[in-house]
Structure formats: structure tokens, C-alpha cells
């Protein structure tokens, strides 16, 4: 929409794209090269058995810890995006509460091995069977399917960076106080993403494919919340006493 789109110069877009790519690289938990080198290290069957025989609450706690670690890197990513820290504190919290797990799912495609359908977890590459003890097979299948479909887009690091920022700066989150400011920032990020896609000579349909991923991410996060609620209904004390405080703040 030409009327509401901000006027942004090419130099400004280039600068924003560079800022977001740099922020992404600086705040990635693992380098892509590291992950690729580790991709042959899959869990052995007895290790898989070990995860499967863990009590449900112990596996939930382990995953909550891993998710929380990954989210802390996403918070750092957000802080380094030009304009994010200029938003009001309420909106910074709203965006991270709603979007940090979505960015973790986007980043997961970097740590995903499509050939073996495994993801880097707890020191090695793990297939869906490793997460059996959680008791939420449907969610795990959806997460793996999502990672697989993200990988099929073959996004470069700068494309992942820009898409992550676009997801994080979603202006349609509930409880935003300065929606217009977030909208402006998201529009600029979208223009920077389009700029990078063009520069990388990506096919025309890539942006609409990425838009579909936005709704897939929302559905994944909604399912994570549903599964957490179901788990908490059975193990309220485990969540209260053993889950990371940041995880509880975000998803409680």
C-alpha cells in the first residue's frame, strides 16, 4: 500500500538489511558451519532409548531449558535490531512474548538435517523419536515438518535474519500500545527483506511462501501453549518449581 508505506531510500534499506544480518550472526547460538560439521553425529539407539525412558516431566523440563536458552539469544537479536529499543518497553515485551518462540522455530531450520530428519538437540542430532517421552507426538511431528519445509526454501543466512526480524516485528500482536511505530518498523523490515531477496535473485514466489510460514509459526506456537497447559494441569508443581523462570514468564 503506497499510502501507508514509509518512504525509504535504497541506502536505508541496505543499511537495515546489514544491521539485521549482523545482529543475526552475532546472536546465533551456533554457527552454521559448526552445525554442518556436527550433522553426522546422530544419537545412537541406546541414547535414544535413554531419552525415551526419561519420565515425562524430566523430558519436559529439559526441553523447557533448551527453549529458554535459545530464546535468550533471540532477545539479544531483537535488542540489536535498529529501532527495536526505541519502541516503548511494553511493546518490546509484547513482541518478544509473542514472537521469540516463533524465531526459535525459524532458526531451527539452520540446525535441521533434512536427509535424516534430525535436529541438533542436547549435543547431537535427534530424530522425532528422541522426544517421545514428552507425550506430544503431534506437536513434535508438526515442528519437524515445519523445519523440513523451511529447509526446502534454501534460505541464506541474510534471508533467515531478515525473515526472523519480520516475524518478530509483527504489528498485529495483541496489547501493542504504539502499533503504528511497530507497523512502520515491520514495513521497513519487509522492504529490506524484499531487497535482499531481489539481490539474491530469488524467484518471485518466495515472499508468498514466507508469508505462509508466518501462519504456520502461529499455529505451532498455539499448539505449544496447548500442550504446555495440558502438561501443567497434570504436573503443576514441576512447572512451578523446576521450569526456567523466563519460560514461565513467557508462556505461563
Amino acid at each position: 500500500n503506497g499510502e501507508t508505506s514509509p518512504t525509504v531510500s535504497m541506502a536505508e534499506l541496505e543499511h537495515l538489511a546489514q544491521n539485521i544480518s549482523k545482529s543475526h550472526v552475532e546472536t546465533c547460538q551456533y554457527l552454521r558451519e559448526e552445525l554442518q560439521q556436527l550433522s553426522w553425529q546422530a544419537f545412537l539407539q541406546d541414547e535414544v532409548d535413554g531419552y525415551q525412558s526419561k519420565p515425562r516431566e524430566v523430558m519436559w523440563q529439559l526441553c523447557a531449558i533448551k527453549i529458554t536458552e535459545a530464546i535468550q539469544y533471540v532477545v539479544e537479536f531483537a535488542k540489536r535490531i535498529d529501532g527495536f529499543m526505541e519502541l516503548c518497553q511494553n511493546d518490546q515485551i509484547v513482541l518478544l512474548k509473542a514472537g521469540s518462540l516463533e524465531v526459535v522455530f525459524v532458526r531451527m531450520c539452520r540446525a535441521f538435517d533434512t536427509q535424516n530428519n534430525t535436529v541438533y538437540f542436547d549435543g547431537k542430532y535427534a530424530g522425532p523419536d528422541v522426544f517421545k517421552a514428552l507425550g506430544c507426538d503431534d506437536l513434535i511431528t508438526s515442528v519437524f515438518d515445519f523445519a523440513k519445509s523451511m529447509c526446502s526454501l534454501h534460505l541464506s543466512e541474510d534471508e533467515i535474519a531478515l525473515f526472523s526480524a519480520f516475524v518478530l516485528l509483527s504489528a498485529d500482536r495483541t496489547w501493542l500500545q504504539e502499533k503504528l511505530q511497530v507497523e512502520k518498523l515491520q514495513q521497513k523490515t519487509q522492504l529490506a527483506l524484499q531487497h535482499v531477496l531481489q539481490k539474491n535473485q530469488r524467484e518471485d514466489g518466495i515472499l508468498s511462501k514466507l508469508r505462509c510460514k508466518v501462519s504456520a509459526l502461529r499455529s505451532l506456537c498455539a499448539r505449544h501453549s496447548e500442550n504446555l497447559s495440558a502438561f501443567r494441569a497434570v504436573y503443576p508443581d514441576i512447572v512451578r518449581s523446576h521450569f526456567p523462570p523466563l519460560y514461565k514468564e513467557l508462556f505461563g
Binding site: 532477545v75 540489536r80 518497553q89 515485551i93 518478544l96
Partner: peptide, 17 residues
Amino acid sequence: LKEKHKILHQLLQNSTS
């Protein structure tokens, strides 16, 4: 919201390393 998200708020306040 800030009150209910003290850790997140703290992380946002910490200077970037």
C-alpha cells in the same frame, strides 16, 4: 506487563555484550 515480565524486562535493560 513490565511487572509480570521482570526477567524479560531485565534482559532488555542489560547492555548488549
